[in-house]
C-alpha cells in the first residue's frame, strides 16, 4: 500500500500515457491470443520496454549511491556481440554465462574506478561508454553478426505462458534484484551510502564494497539487456545496439522519483518508468505523426511527468486532498 502511494504520480502518469495512446490508436488496449502468445500494442509496450527496464534496474541502484552509469548502452553492445558470436557454436548456458560474465566484468571495472580510484562516476563510466562500443565493434568486426540458434532467439522472440520472454526476464530480474537488495540489508546500505557516505562509513558500513556492488549489478543488468536486444533481432549490431539507451535508463530512474544526488530508490518504480517511456515511444509510432516530431513529443511528456512529481505541485495536491 505504502509503495503504491509513493508511486502514485508515476502510476497516474503511466495510465495517462496509456489513455493517450488509446486515443490515438483505438486498438491500443486490445490484447488477444495468437500463436500461443499474447499479442497487442500493450504487449509491445512491455516487450519493447524490456531492455531499458533491465538497464534501469541496475541504474536505479547506481543512482541511489549518488553515482551514474553512462556505460550501460555500450555494455549492451558488448554483451550482445559476445552472445551472438557464440550462439551457434556453444550451448545456451555457455553463451549466457559468457555474455553476463562480460557485463559483470565491465561493471566491476566501473566500480573499481569509482569506489577504489575515486574517479567521478560520470567520468569513470564515460570511459567505458566510449571504449565499450569500440570493443563491441572489434568483436563483430564492424558488421552485424547474425545467428540461428533457436535457444538464444527464444530469449528475444519466445514466450512463457503467453508472456514474451523479454517481459518474463524483466520480471525475473526485478524479483531477483528485490530479493537481493530488499531481502537483505543491501538496500538500506545503498540508501545510507547515497544519503550520507561519511556518516555511513562511520556507522561501520563498507561503502566501498557497496559502491562496487551496484556498478557490478548495473553491468550485469546491461549485459542481460544486450542479450535480449540481440536475441530480438537475431543478431548483434555493435553500432546501434543500446545506442543512447543509457539516457533512457537515467530518465526512467528520474521519472521513478529518484534523486540523482543519491538516497531513496524504488526498483519497481524504475521499471515502471522504463515502461512509461516505452508507452510514449509506442504511442508516437502509432500516432502517425511525422517522425520529425518524435523527440519533441517525448520531451513534452517527460516534462509533464517531472512536473507532476515536483515538490511544489505535490504540496498543492496535498492541500487539495486535506479537506476530505
Amino acid at each position: 500500500m505504502r509503495a503504491l502511494r509513493a508511486g502514485a504520480p508515476q502510476l497516474l502518469a503511466f495510465l495517462a500515457v496509456l489513455l493517450a495512446d488509446r486515443l490515438v490508436a483505438p486498438q491500443f488496449l486490445d490484447v488477444h491470443w495468437q500463436d500461443g502468445r499474447l499479442f497487442g500494442n500493450l504487449v509491445d509496450v512491455f516487450n519493447r520496454g524490456a531492455p531499458v527496464a533491465l538497464l534501469s534496474l541496475g541504474m536505479v541502484l547506481v543512482v541511489a549511491t549518488g553515482g551514474i552509469d553512462l556505460s550501460v548502452g555500450a555494455v549492451m553492445a558488448i554483451a550482445g556481440a559476445v552472445a551472438a558470436s557464440l550462439a551457434d557454436t556453444q550451448p545456451l548456458p555457455v553463451v549466457l554465462g559468457a555474455a553476463l560474465g562480460t557485463g559483470l566484468l565491465c561493471g566491476l571495472w566501473n566500480g573499481l574506478l569509482v569506489a577504489v580510484l575515486r574517479i567521478q562516476p560520470i567520468v569513470a563510466t564515460l570511459i567505458l561508454m566510449v571504449a565499450g562500443r569500440g570493443i563491441a565493434q572489434l568483436i563483430t568486426e564492424g558488421r552485424i553478426i547474425t545467428f540461428a540458434s533457436p535457444d538464444l532467439a527464444f530469449l528475444g522472440g519466445g514466450a512463457l505462458v503467453g508472456v514474451p520472454m523479454p517481459v518474463v526476464l524483466v520480471l525475473g530480474m526485478l524479483v531477483l534484484t528485490l530479493a537481493l537488495v530488499r531481502g537483505t540489508a543491501l538496500g538500506l546500505m545503498i540508501e545510507a551510502t547515497g544519503g550520507n557516505a561519511r556518516a555511513s562509513a562511520l556507522a561501520g558500513i563498507d561503502t566501498r564494497a557497496v559502491t562496487l556492488a551496484v556498478y557490478a549489478w548495473s553491468g550485469l543488468c546491461a549485459a542481460l539487456a544486450g542479450v535480449v536486444a540481440a536475441a530480438d533481432i537475431l543478431g548483434a549490431d555493435a553500432n546501434n545496439a543500446g545506442l543512447w539507451l543509457e539516457l533512457d535508463a537515467i530518465l526512467a530512474v528520474v521519472v521513478a522519483g529518484s534523486s540523482l544526488l543519491g538516497g531513496r530508490f524504488s526498483l519497481w518504480l524504475a521499471v515502471l518508468g522504463a515502461f512509461l517511456i516505452q508507452a510514449m515511444n509506442t504511442g508516437i509510432l502509432l500516432s502517425g505523426l511525422p517522425p520529425e516530431l518524435n523527440l519533441v513529443v517525448k520531451a513534452a511528456v517527460v516534462l509533464a511527468v517531472l512536473l507532476l512529481q515536483s515538490p511544489r505541485l505535490a504540496g498543492l495536491s496535498l492541500l487539495l486532498r486535506k479537506p476530505s
Binding site: Q27, N41, D44, I233, L285, L286, G288
Partner: peptide
C-alpha cells in the same frame, strides 16, 4: 522491427 510491429497493429 519495432516500427513495423506498431504499423501492423495500427
Amino acid at each position: 522491427k519495432e516500427v513495423m510491429e506498431s504499423f501492423i497493429k495500427a
